[in-house]
Design a protein around this nucleic acid. Structure first.
Length: 968
RNA sequence: GCCGCUAUGGCGGAAUUGGUAGACGCGCUGGAUUCAAAAUCCAGUUCCUUCGGGAGUGUGGGUUCGAUUCCCACUGGCGGUACCA
């Protein structure tokens, strides 16, 4: 039998497709296991070798669980709505649905090429109307509910209406945009429009004017996690804050449950910490300060009420609603100047330069505990969105307040004695209170409680919990997304589109551009105008489709519900969720939110969607640069030339076509990206070195390929090459290299198809697993893949002879052979369980080396080994399984179990140490007792040599482990 | 700044509960085979060494009979986040 990886891949991939080997039914006889990959956005550039890392890991788990007798759900789909397809459409005129269909087909092809065991019959696509019908349906349910804090769950909006009709806002404890007070009579007297506006204050999906991240270049608002460093994540355009009428989801209502739920799931500590951070819970006090000469009071939030005696000024955000009323005539000019300054400052400015700025309003507040008069300032360091948008400033203990006080000449009163705690900050909450009346002498934690109690007793505030997390802006002024299923009726009241009219599909349009904040859908006049009223023209963000997709896979073709009750009762939740860390915070958090909402309305049986989460590490690629220099020839001519990165300024050179002179590096020179496909990685004196060979340059001139075309335009900038010569006399340039994320733009993406074409899918899969722990970031390097290929062939050779058939015999395995097999079974089973795939590969190598050495050809040993390697190398395993006469597919053959009787050792090699240093090893029967081992060790000649002339103070014997003599 | 992850040969990495550090693979060195090369196979490969041994898991300390593993204090790299009161 010939080891022909190409033929194997083709044969079995066809077989699996024809026989639907990986089809999953909702059969209930077996226990279920749901292993899910984060579905990709199908971009135009296809998969690179970084993508499959997680897919391969999850595929191994899926296959192993399938063999171990589970009914495994292992689906794949596409997150197909989103900005890039639309941007591509604007640039090229290709409709997003067309480019999406093309890209998804390519993705599927690439995944099938890797032998991934997805059940494609269950595939979903978020841009498919039969899918987004249910996205719209779910958001409709969210719109139709409010959050009851009393019962701590979402309830139908009808319940709220009943309450308001009977009691007004009396006794209502609801998640709300702002605290409102309405009597039952007032509510009953409201027009439909007034009622609708009031209910918006409570709906879990609601429309309001809020400050949002506006991106002019993209013509849409963005969520906080779509903005990085004040610029858009997609396209890197500037982002500004702008008040706009937007749909949002009230995620703040679920903040506490999203936090508490983290204790019940198996996520990494790091990931949990990120989610905790993002939610940002802090406990403190809400305190009311009276304002001199005004009826309004100023509410502030502080986590340190114990420091209230140190308050020497107040600061409110420039956008605070009281600014206008508090400003005195004398300060009006100063305040107006400051407000216009703040208006000019972009988000980016604020972040890049942390200036101490502000202005005095002329107003004064009164400290409720000591009656002190404190001036009220406005300053940009106080944020409108957090807490109440106002603070009591305690310059003695808060760095920002201190800088402000120093700049504006405000008093500083020390209120916390921290000499016992050097380096302690405000957040540490330690020290002893001084200069603070009744709080004097208390330790900080005690003082916080005492101050809060006093404030409450005086009716000047309450204990309060605050969250950093903001409600989730859920409107986009873009074309390629789910339309909001809302129609504004004649009274401008937003009404849900009835379920029977879902999905609300996108109108056909030619031009998708968003113009000055208006959604492109507004231009589809026929679509906007309906018999019932005017359609909402905002679409939903990409997260709308991705935050519930795991449920759709359970029952993908159900057109009566987003998922059937039977299906969700059977599959419950995701047992293992695998994906990139870049989605670790937002996607997981939003998805958990929707899941908890669906739990509240009785549509899912579990409180959390994902039991266990694995974040695979990013595979980076080398980004290589070719250097451009100037050859200054002896006759004073300047020639641009390509040079090696190791050449210094002033190096004498002679270059064909340019002449003789020396190298100049100035502003006109620099580096240019070199596509990875033209770069050769070699090793020189144990240092890796990246080179551009002349043959590659010549090849680039010929190739009809995007990378080659780009490279040609780069090379035209130089006229000549200052080649080095290698040992074989080939010409090359040394390149400089850094590691970075693989991307088409950096020309460093490596296509898995190329690797599979050369080594086969099995080798690619095992090599990616062999690179290292799956959750660690690592650079891509092709060195080492030959080792995995060699291993696979050695494994293959255990079974095959020189002729056509197998060389397998039916004689029973020897004790030694069985021990190798069962050690392997135990190791691989354990390691898959703890997601340590790299050590599995190494275990297969060890076993193969040993079995080769033993010249094993016994069926009893080799047949289980095939079933064992099936999750890792599915094609090769299938071929050998068939040759061995196996029934059906190896991927449904039982997972081998180990038997301890093959693993017990007759004797154990003990390291013998003296004062902790191992000097020799001795063999003792494994049944030996502590005393027997000590006696036998003492009797050993070598040991006596080490002990001679010394006294033994103590002997430590750990049976089956080691012996240590403590000598003096 | 804060939070998280991480540090082991020339390289990727292993050591699961505190018990022989460097498994496995790459690379490198030598040998076999070959007219030769590729491929394959065999042996060696942490460093130093006077060949007795000594040192060694980012640095410095600690706990322990024994520390890559636990504790304390640092340093570097990567990622996230940022005026959050």
């Amino acid at each position: 039998m010939k080891f022909d990886v190409q033929a194997l891949d083709r044969k079995w991939q066809n077989y699996w497709q024809e026989h639907k080997t990986y089809r999953t039914t909702n059969e209930t006889g077996k226990p279920k296991y749901y292993v899910l990959d984060m579905f990709p956005y199908p971009s135009g550039s296809g998969l690179h070798v970084g993508h499959p890392l997680g897919y391969i890991g999850s595929d191994i788990v899926a296959r192993q669980k399938r063999q171990a007798g589970f009914n495994v759900l292992h689906p794949m789909g596409f997150d197909a709505f989103g900005l890039p397809a639309e941007q591509y459409a604007i640039d090229t005129g290709v409709h997003p649905s067309e480019s999406t269909a093309h890209n998804t087909a390519r993705y599927r092809e690439q995944m099938e090429r890797l032998g991934l065991s997805f059940d494609w019959d269950r595939s979903v696509n978020t841009s498919d109307p039969s899918y987004f019908k249910w996205t719209q349906w779910i958001i409709g349910r969210v719109f139709d509910h409010w959050y009851d804090r009393q019962e701590d769950r979402a309830r139908p909006i009808g319940d709220l209406v009943s309450h308001l009709e009977a009691h007004g806002t009396d006794g209502l404890r609801a998640a709300e945009s702002e605290a409102l007070a309405v009597t039952a009579a007032e509510f009953r007297g409201m027009t439909e429009k007034q009622r609708s506006d009031l209910l918006m204050n409570y709906r879990l999906a609601f429309r309001s004017v809020s400050y949002v991240n506006w991106c002019e270049a993209l013509g849409t608002v963005l969520a906080n996690d779509e903005v990085k460093d004040g610029r858009s994540e997609r396209g890197n355009h500037p982002v500004e804050q702008r008040p706009m009428l937007q749909w949002s989801l009230r995620i703040t209502a679920y903040a506490e449950r999203l936090l508490a739920g983290l204790d019940t799931v198996d996520y990494s500590e790091g990931l949990k910490a990120q989610q905790v951070n993002w939610i940002g819970k802090s406990t403190g006090a809400l305190v009311h300060f009276d304002i001199e000469g005004h009826d309004e009071r100023l509410d502030i939030f502080t986590t340190r009420p114990d420091t209230i005696f140190g308050t020497t000024f107040m600061v409110i955000a420039p956008e605070h609603e009281l600014v206008d009323r508090l400003t005195t005539a004398g300060q009006r000019g100063e305040i107006d100047d400051y407000l216009s300054y703040v208006g000019r400052r972009s988000e980016l400015d604020r972040m890049s330069e942390n200036r101490v700025t502000g202005a005095f309003t002329g107003a004064y507040a009164t400290n409720p505990l000591n009656g002190e008069r404190v001036p009220i300032y406005i300053a940009e360091y106080v944020l409108k969105d957090y807490g109440t948008g106002a603070i009591m400033a305690v310059p003695s203990d808060d760095d920002r307040d201190k800088r402000f006080a120093e700049k504006f000449g405000i008093d500083i009163i020390d209120v916390v004695e921290k000499t016992d705690y050097p380096g302690a900050t405000l957040k540490d909450k330690v020290g002893r209170i001084i200069n603070s009346g009744f709080l004097n002498g208390m330790e900080v934690p005690e003082a916080i409680t005492a101050a809060t109690r006093r404030i409450e007793a005086l009716g000047r505030g309450t204990e309060q919990v605050n969250y950093r997390i903001r409600d989730l802006v859920f409107s986009r002024q873009r074309y390629w997304g789910e339309p909001w299923p809302i129609i504004y009726d004649g009274n401008d009241v937003p009404q849900l589109v009835p379920d029977t009219e879902l999905p609300v599909t996108l109108p056909e349009m030619e031009d998708f551009r968003a113009v000055s904040g208006a959604s492109p859908l507004e231009r589809a006049k026929d679509w906007v105008a309906t018999a019932r009223g005017r359609r909402e023209t905002d679409t939903m963000p990409a997260t709308a489709g991705s935050n519930w997709y795991y449920l759709r896979y359970m029952d993908p073709n159900n057109d009566g519900a987003f998922v059937g009750q039977d299906a969700v009762e059977y599959w419950q939740d995701v047992d293992l969720y695998v994906g990139g860390a870049e989605h670790a915070v937002s996607h997981i958090l939003y998805s958990r939110l929707i899941h908890k909402f669906l739990y509240d309305i009785g549509k899912v049986p579990t409180r959390e969607p994902y039991k266990k989460l694995l974040n695979q590490g990013m595979i980076g690629g080398p980004i290589s640069y070719i250097h451009l220099g100037i050859l200054l020839t002896d006759d004073g001519q300047r020639h641009p030339i390509w040079v090696s990165s190791d050449l210094a300024e002033g190096t004498p050179l002679e270059v064909d076509g340019a002449g003789k002179g020396y190298l100049v590096l100035d502003e006109s020179t620099g580096t240019r990206l070199t596509p990875l496909r033209f770069v050769t990685e070699t090793s020189v004196n144990n240092e890796s070195s990246f080179r551009l060979y002349r043959s590659s340059v010549d090849e680039a001139q010929q190739l009809d390929h995007q990378d080659a075309a780009y490279f040609r335009t780069i090379l035209q900038q130089g006229t000549a090459f200052a080649w080095h010569l290698d040992k074989e006399g080939r010409q090359y340039l040394e390149l400089s290299v850094e590691q970075g994320k693989m991307s088409k733009r950096k020309y460093n993406a490596v296509n898995p198809d190329d690797i599979c074409a050369r080594y086969g899918a099995d080798c690619f899969r095992m090599y990616e697993m062999f690179l290292g722990p799956i959750d660690q970031a690592k650079p891509w390097s092709v060195s080492g893949i030959d080792g995995v290929y060699r291993f696979l062939r050695r494994f293959w050779n255990l079974y095959t002879g020189d002729g056509d058939g197998l060389k397998v015999s039916d004689a029973p395995g020897t004790k030694e052979e069985m021990k190798v097999l069962h050690t392997l079974i135990r190791k691989v089973t354990d390691d898959i369980d703890r997601l340590s795939f790299n050590t599995c590969v190494s275990a297969f190598m060890v076993a193969t080396n040993e079995l080769t050495k033993l010249s094993t050809n016994k069926r009893e040993v080799l047949e289980p080994a095939v079933r064992l390697i099936a999750p890792f190398a599915p094609h090769l395993a299938e071929e050998l399984f068939e040759a061995l006469g196996g029934e059906g597919s190896v991927h449904h053959a039982a997972w081998p179990e180990w038997d301890n009787k093959y693993l017990v050792e007759d004797s154990i090699t003990y390291p013998i140490a003296f004062n902790g240093k191992t000097r020799l090893t001795l063999e003792f029967p494994s049944a030996s007792s502590r005393e027997e081992i000590e006696a036998a060790a003492r009797a050993d000649e070598q040991v006596q040599g080490y002990l001679s002339g010394k006294s033994v103070r103590k002997v430590i014997v750990v049976p089956k482990r080691m012996v240590n003599f403590v000598v003096g």
